[in-house]
Design a protein around this nucleic acid. Structure first.
Lengths: 241, 241
DNA sequence: CGTCGCTTTGAGACCTATCAACAATGGTGG
DNA sequence: CCACCATTGTTGATAGGTCTCAAAGCGACG
């Protein structure tokens, strides 16, 4: 539990985790903490000695610009090993904060290193998880640079649906996420006003309903076509890694 | 040689590579190939069995949208282990192509796995290199989402200078890179016309000269302030990883 | 019932894209 | 050596997307 079961599930979806590796993960000592909406989980500029895993709720990475603008560079769902980066990067170049209330577990770098030290395959699986994050980030870059606001919004909705479905948090074309329009603007690089209008466009086309922190996708197929969404980058293939 | 010396240099800058790990890298069999301008090094959708390292020249990752637009999601300089991702991701979600003429060396996944199999630290150092790539990508996301065209352009110039200086390809506030304005547009998510005008703005402020594929930074300090550039994300710290 | 956080609306300004044309450059073959 | 061509850079004009500012609507909650 403590989100480690979800982590195992996400990794196992990509390549079978043998029992001994699952055991290594399950044996990791955790320090569970619950954060309230918008609370900072890891601060930009700090030097964490632990990494954190989302157990429940959502977390985002964000960078702030000098002018006080904010950009969300990743959204993390339960089972995501959010801050595995700090294991290697040492100094945080961005902060991680809770989206709505969020339960995470902290795992000491020391314990992580011990666990993976004797298992090259488990090491690769964790490496893989950071690599999938990077793959998602590349896709976000393309969305920001070359897709319209409408396409970008549609794209993120498709992505969230697929990722949440994987951990059992989305089904029947619907899922819940505590994302305000302001925060959505920080994801899409748009102003609140424009987010609102873009959302209305998707509604007007009967593609989605976004109400009370719940999203209903009325026509995934058409939404995916509009968004130019191709799930390859989420790496949902099961194979030897 | 074959770029492996540069790889060692880049890793060693972040954490001392002991002689045995350097030896492991140097012993890796390589297959050197030279690509002409704009040639594809790794194709989107393919399943590489080798990873490639830039030995000379530049390579970019790019994604294409259905509408035929192109976004460059990363620029790789000599010493960059461009395609280490494919070791874990298996299926390419983007392609890699040469910027100008570019020498790369291919290294078989099989050989890489053997080399790192017995060395957890070397494994982490390669993992680190993909993590730094991800860190750069996050910064690009912020530039795309929350900075003006002018700031973004200034930012990428600062970044390239710092990264190239690290491998001895930039000094005295100047460096060469075979990037056309159209390609620069694909990096910044802008149209060619706007790139041209933005470049003129930086010139008019006596910040940079960009001519004949050579960039001269007239005032790094002011450029960095304009860009809100902070090199933390490039992880130039030497420490145990 | 008033406050607070969030969503929605309107209007105008600004940034960036698009289209079209032209200038500069470098390479090529005659 | 010159004419030609392809590529790259530059400019102008106009359209459209997105931002900003300001204000109003709405629902939850104490």
């Amino acid at each position: 539990m403590f989100g480690k079961d979800l982590l195992v599930r996400m990794l196992d979806r990509r390549d079978t985790l043998p029992p001994d590796e699952i055991a290594l993960i399950e044996a990791l000592p955790v320090r569970p903490v619950t954060f309230g909406p918008d609370e900072e989980i890891v601060r930009e500029g700090s030097r964490p000695t632990e990494s954190c895993l989302v157990a429940n709720g959502f977390a985002v990475r964000n960078q702030a610009t000098r002018e006080g603008k904010r950009q969300i560079t990743a959204i993390h769902v339960p089972g995501d090993f959010v801050d595995l980066h700090s294991l290697l990067l040492k100094v945080m170049d961005h902060s991680v904060s809770a989206l709505g209330s969020c339960e995470v577990v902290f795992i000491r770098h020391k314990d992580l290193l011990t666990a993976i030290g004797g298992s090259p395959h488990l090491t690769r699986m964790l490496w893989l998880s950071t690599t999938i994050d990077a793959s998602i980030q590349r896709t976000w870059i393309t969305c920001l640079g070359r897709r319209s606001a409408k396409q970008h919004l549609a794209h993120i909705i498709c992505e969230l649906y697929v990722r949440l479905e994987l951990v059992g948090l989305a089904s029947d074309q619907t899922f819940a996420i505590p994302l305000t329009q302001a925060e959505l603007g920080d994801v899409l690089g748009l102003s609140v006003v424009h987010v609102n209008r873009t959302l209305q466009e998707l509604r007007a086309k009967d593609l989605v309903i976004w109400k009370d922190r719940r999203i209903v996708i009325l026509d995934f197929q058409r939404l995916a076509i509009l968004a130019d969404f191709d799930a390859t980058y989420l790496n949902l293939f099961h194979e030897p890694r």
